[in-house]
């Protein structure tokens, strides 16, 4: 969505609400909130024209902390709510957000189908490789040998899910990875994701300092992607399959046409439809 010159200009504060976040001090999600509001200010989209939808989890608490139209739904269902909003009100800027558990586990089916459907919206996942809200269980992106969860004390022993590869295979039109600690860089990624037509997926490494304190080290591990984004899915697949998971930047930019059904009436009234029933 392009800003027009007649739009009033906004600052990041205009997109923040008075509600105080419940997050733990040091949680990566604070910074994501900052990045999202910065991106919206950069794009100068009036707050009332933005819909921000989430599921359930620490990260999914985000909408209430903003001053846009928010929807805090149930666990795993942010994407279908966002789909319903965008398809019926295409003039709105629609963002879905949430955690790795919300998006890749309970909502995994919606994730694949949202990529495939390619509705023009942006999906931001704050990935901390853990279920923060339920106090530290393994998520689909948790390493198999993480033994700190009471539920899987020997580790899960199963391979983590690779959200970017799945997004690509399922048909997402824009794929990026960011690190919450880099608020400006992440704001830039989100800005690009919102601007890009179709379904844009942004994975944000956002540390859970409470249940994954070792993620504080992520700030030293992330590095900018070495090459420019590609529009070739085969090349993108190779890169995503082989990267170290800390490669940040825009990684894929596709050009698939977004899904947006026509909304042009061809009859004047419901009464016109009734003719088919008359004997």
């Amino acid at each position: 969505m392009e800003a027009t010159s007649t739009c009033p200009s906004y600052s990041a504060r205009d997109y923040k609400s008075e509600v105080k976040p419940v997050w733990c001090p040091g949680c990566g999600d604070y910074s994501v909130l900052g990045s999202i509001t910065k991106a919206l200010a950069e794009l100068s989209i009036p707050p009332e024209r933005v819909a921000l939808v989430s599921g359930i989890g620490c990260s999914s608490r985000l909408p209430a902390y903003t001053n846009v139209f928010g929807f805090h739904g149930v666990h795993g269902r942010a994407l279908p709510i966002a789909t319903g909003i965008k398809v019926s009100r295409p003039e709105l800027t629609v963002i879905a957000s949430g955690g790795d558990g919300d998006g890749f586990s309970i909502g995994g089916n919606h994730f694949m189908h949202a990529c495939r459907r390619n509705v023009d919206m942006t999906y931001i996942v704050m990935d901390n490789e853990v279920y923060g809200m339920t106090k530290g269980q393994a998520s689909p992106t948790t390493a198999p040998d993480w033994e700190k969860s009471k539920l899987t004390p020997q580790g899960t022993g199963i391979n983590p899910f690779h959200p970017l590869v799945i997004a690509l295979a399922a048909g997402a039109n824009f794929i990026a990875r960011g690190f919450s600690g880099d608020q400006n860089g992440t704001a830039q990624l989100i800005t690009e994701a919102i601007r890009h037509p179709g379904f844009s997926f942004v994975q944000l490494l956002s540390p859970c300092v409470t249940f994954r304190p070792e993620q504080r080290d992520w700030k030293d591990m992330v590095h900018p992607a070495a090459v420019d984004p590609t529009d070739d899915p085969a090349r993108a697949a190779r890169r995503l399959m082989t990267d170290d998971g800390f490669n940040v930047g825009v990684l894929y930019r596709g050009s698939r046409k977004p899904f947006q059904p026509e909304r042009q009436a061809s009859v004047d009234s419901v009464a016109d439809l009734e003719k088919e029933f008359v004997l």
Binding site: R77, I81, G84, R89, N109, A265, L273
Partner: peptide
Amino acid sequence: AKLGGVLVQAEDELASINQIIGASYAGV
């Protein structure tokens, strides 16, 4: 479609009910 409305085939019923919640929230 004739009335200018939209039907979306969803991936499952969890999606279909949440899509209608979204569209209704948006005013439709």
